[in-house]
């Protein structure tokens, strides 16, 4: 069972539900932010994109205080699988479930475009359906997606192999030109040290059908689903 958290101002919650339920055939429900516990059968928590609480103060800063986030924190602490896209990534950073923060895009533009990202590791629960070095095309749509952390933290992310996706060109080269928003080290997505919490700015739920943007997003969402099914059998 997949819990898609719905904050006031979330706007990709239904797309996430569509990707998981209709496309991948998983059991998934929307969970309102006022809930203080997750459904007992929850195997995956998804934090969707959008503008939770109107992005007041800082993106994701207010959502952190939602009643449901206590339950999400406990779920993650117990090793549950958590994935946050876009605003969901910002919420994970503000909550301390992931290190760093997402800053305003370098050139201030709101970006809405299909973007190439290179898979850095495929030996994780979020990328098992990919190959290392594979280029995925997944849309981004954000005004504040420039990943930032201090030098020490950046070193730790690199040393631990916590960077799973980097912005790249069509050939998979990680270059400054291919960095749309000014993220440090071209970071598009990072995982926590334990490997059960993943945040990314691209929207895999928007790349799930041939004909409208391709299906590269399913490689990420499908990997996560595989991991949940494997854990269920274990």
């Amino acid at each position: 069972m997949i819990a898609v958290i719905q904050f006031p101002g979330s706007n990709d919650d239904r797309d996430m539900l569509f990707a998981m339920k209709t496309i991948l055939g998983a059991e998934a429900s929307l969970i309102w932010h006022q809930e203080t516990v997750l459904p007992a059968k929850t195997e995956i928590v998804l934090l969707p994109g959008g503008f939770s609480y109107g992005d007041y103060l800082r993106c994701g800063a207010m959502a952190r205080f939602s009643p449901v986030m206590g339950a999400v924190q406990r779920f993650a602490d117990a090793g549950g699988f958590v994935l946050g896209t876009c605003n969901g990534f910002q919420v994970l950073c503000e909550s301390g479930l992931l290190p760093g923060i997402l800053l305003r895009n370098r050139k201030l533009h709101f970006l809405c475009q299909n973007t190439a990202v290179r898979v850095e590791r495929s030996d994780t629960i979020f990328t098992s359906r990919t190959k290392p070095g594979e280029v995925l095309w997944i849309p981004i749509k954000h005004g504040e997606g420039a990943y930032y952390a201090d030098t020490k933290q950046m070193q730790r992310l690199e040393d631990n192999g916590q960077i799973l996706l980097r912005y790249c060109d069509a050939e998979g080269s990680v270059t400054e030109d291919a960095n749309p928003n000014g993220s440090l080290h071209n970071i598009a997505g990072i995982v926590n040290e334990r490997g059960n919490v993943f945040g990314l700015m691209p929207h895999p739920e928007h790349a799930v059908e041939e004909g409208i943007g391709g299906t590269d997003g399913l490689k990420i969402l499908g990997s996560l689903l595989d991991a949940a099914l494997a854990r269920r059998k274990a």
Partner: peptide
């Protein structure tokens, strides 16, 4: 040391 593109604009 944090870039401030709004300030720059």
């Amino acid at each position: 040391d944090v870039l401030d593109p709004q300030g720059q604009a």
